[in-house]
Amino acid sequence: MIRVLIADDHAILRDGLKLILSECADMVVAGEAEDGDAVLAMIRDRDWDVLVLDMAMPGKSGIELLKRVKSERPRMPVLVLSMQDDSQYAVRSLKAGASGYVCKAGASAELVKAIRKVAAGGMFISPSIAENLAFGLSTNVEAPRHSLLTAREYEVFMLIASGHGTTAIANRLHLSVKTISTHKARIMEKMEFASTADLIKYALKHGLLENEDVVHK
């Protein structure tokens, strides 16, 4: 039996989710939480097979709450339930430790399958988001390499891909050359590139810039 904890601040939505899951013989909603503090209290008090977590609740919520939950219960699968039909937000949730991401708009059709998948150790992403990121709905979900970058790293990445040198980027962003060099090293490591040429080829291949955007020296 899959014991589910539902965390959402809207009682009507919790009731709807319970109704959906009540038809499944292999799972039971064994607890409910309406804010972040209640979530933390309940995961400390009992073991759960799956936490279905709304990302917009009063108090502690979102990525901050998700990270806190995973720090206290690293082996507990968390299925994010969000209004955000945003592929990059989904990626941030996965990076923070979520095992799955379901949009509320499609919850009635996807929830049961998603809970079973993450409870079994797999990962699940709503198909609409999976298509945007070329995700495969399998245990080996992979996001585009550039989604691993921070906002600043992505900015530096795009300038490097456009053919700008370290000094030029430093002047443009009002940062030191050393800082830009550090960003570049992290970008190369995260994206597993051996050379700047590899970085430029990646940007072109993924449509991040056109050939005419590259500065030819």
Rank of each mutant, 00 (worst) to 15 (best):
M1D: 10
I2N: 00
V4E: 00
D8P: 02
D9L: 07
H10M: 05
L13P: 03
L19P: 02
L21P: 05
S22K: 10
E23S: 12
V28R: 05
V28Q: 11
V29S: 00
A30P: 01
G31K: 00
D35F: 01
D35K: 06
D37Y: 07
L40N: 07
D47S: 14
W48S: 04
D49H: 06
D49I: 01
V52M: 05
V52W: 01
L53I: 02
A56P: 00
M57A: 04
M57Q: 01
S61R: 04
I63K: 01
L65W: 02
R68C: 12
S71C: 11
P74T: 03
M76L: 11
L81V: 08
S82V: 00
Y89H: 15
L94N: 06
K95Y: 08
G97Q: 01
G100M: 10
G100Q: 12
Y101L: 08
A105R: 10
G106Q: 11
S108E: 14
E110L: 09
R116S: 06
V118W: 02
A120W: 05
S126L: 11
P127Q: 04
S128M: 12
A130G: 15
A130N: 11
N132T: 08
N132W: 10
F135A: 08
T139W: 10
N140T: 12
E142C: 14
L149N: 08
T150R: 04
Y154D: 03
E155L: 12
E155G: 14
E155H: 11
F157D: 01
M158V: 11
L159D: 02
A161V: 06
G165A: 12
T167N: 12
T167P: 05
N171P: 03
N171A: 11
L173C: 09
L175C: 07
V177W: 01
K178L: 09
H183R: 06
K184D: 03
R186Y: 10
I187K: 03
M188T: 04
K190P: 08
K190A: 04
K190E: 05
F193T: 04
S195H: 05
T196A: 15
K201R: 15
K201F: 12
A203C: 11
V215Y: 14
